[in-house]
Design a binder for these strands. Sequence first.
DNA 1: CGCATTGTTGACAAAGTTCAATTTGCGTGG
DNA 2: CCACGCAAATTGAACTTTGTCAACAATGCG
Lengths: 240, 240
Amino acid sequence: MIDAGRRVRAASSVALPPGFRSRLLEGLTPSEIRAVLAVARQRKISPNEVLQNEGDPTRHLFLMVTGHGAFYKTTPEGDKLFLRWISPGDAFGLATLLQTQPQPSFTTVQALRGCSVFAWERVSAHALASQIPRLRENTYTLATDYVRSLGDALAARANQTAEQRLARVLVDSARHIGCAGCAGIEFGLTNEQLAQMADVSVFTVSRQLSEWQSQGILTKSRKKIVIRAPERLSSPPQQK
Amino acid sequence: MIDAGRRVRAASSVALPPGFRSRLLEGLTPSEIRAVLAVARQRKISPNEVLQNEGDPTRHLFLMVTGHGAFYKTTPEGDKLFLRWISPGDAFGLATLLQTQPQPSFTTVQALRGCSVFAWERVSAHALASQIPRLRENTYTLATDYVRSLGDALAARANQTAEQRLARVLVDSARHIGCAGCAGIEFGLTNEQLAQMADVSVFTVSRQLSEWQSQGILTKSRKKIVIRAPERLSSPPQQK
DNA sequence: CGCATTGTTGACAAAGTTCAATTTGCGTGG
DNA sequence: CCACGCAAATTGAACTTTGTCAACAATGCG
């Protein structure tokens, strides 16, 4: 209706897929959502593309629509620490919403396979946040969640064994990027990717997966893991 | 001057020590600062007192005036992970400023020795933030910094050796709680405290400190460390 | 002086990594 | 269609780092 007079904009504009839910937009009125989407751009992301590089100023606010990505932290020595998965509905680059000046981002965000995202320029995002109080509140909530998962990642590194960290990675991956197959939840990751994410050597991954396979907890083949009994991955460490 | 007519309030009210600087209040106008201090309460904190407990809802905004404290994260298994020091001028409990609802805090804050702090009730803090835009902006900046140091702590745990972590703790402690003595920067911490902070065993602390002492980098005596050459603690790990 | 706290030392054990040698699985080009 | 070649995965053995434990020494306080 508002867009009646500018069909060109409307045509190139973006729309939410049916059934799409995002905590970023939760509780916003339809007209607010329209205002937000009006200044968004839809982008296709190729596999492994880096959307945000740790240290670079945050240029965009992103909302994952389809596909998956991951937050990483790069250490001074250069290796990547996996922090958490990004799934459809997750937003990142939240700093754009709050900060007046662009600030270096703390994490790298990389697409796993192809993705489709909504993107907002920093200034547009900031303007939206200043106009829509509910958007600011949602941002606080989401930022809080990210800090919490950063904290969890820290706790996990600090005092968990290689086995526990690997189990955590498997469970998280199953939850976020897994598809329910006939034999369990399956997802495609190489030993090397798992090794990076859990911060263990590929050898440890290989050995541990073999052991779990022999216990019937999972099945592995080349570049693919099928988790049969996720509950047996989360509990045993505590018993010990 | 404004307080002329209400000496009772003025008497029980708080004032900033001369020369006190805080990034939380930076850039606020004198009248804004007066408004902020008007609803503050000054509190004396006894040694080792816990000001904020991880998981408990954030009740207060605090501003450290004199003394030192530390942020800790408690793991599910119950051990404390040291995150960073709190020095005079540092604020914490920032969530009170932004969030409408009290949220569980991510970290525990504990005083080292006796401290003096300013404290604000959650609702007062939230009201101040909604009235003073600059206060909100400062809050974003500070929150960003805390996230950054959380990230640094994570990176440090993930891929540094026991020696590097201990060196980091010494350098940080020297910077934050150290006093310049004749022979170097000195501070009082037991081996056990250092061990907890660096997440190594007391034995490793003892051995490593002995080695550094024999290299002339520091001097140790009971409950006291004197750092002679902090630069030799930060650089050697990289050379290797 | 006696006692508790704090720190030290050496021998040993556990967890994981590193490395080298192989094996497995899979796509591709002849 | 099959053999080739390569990336991915495996395996065992040596090795490094760090923690564990037990015994002991030093420090300082009442």
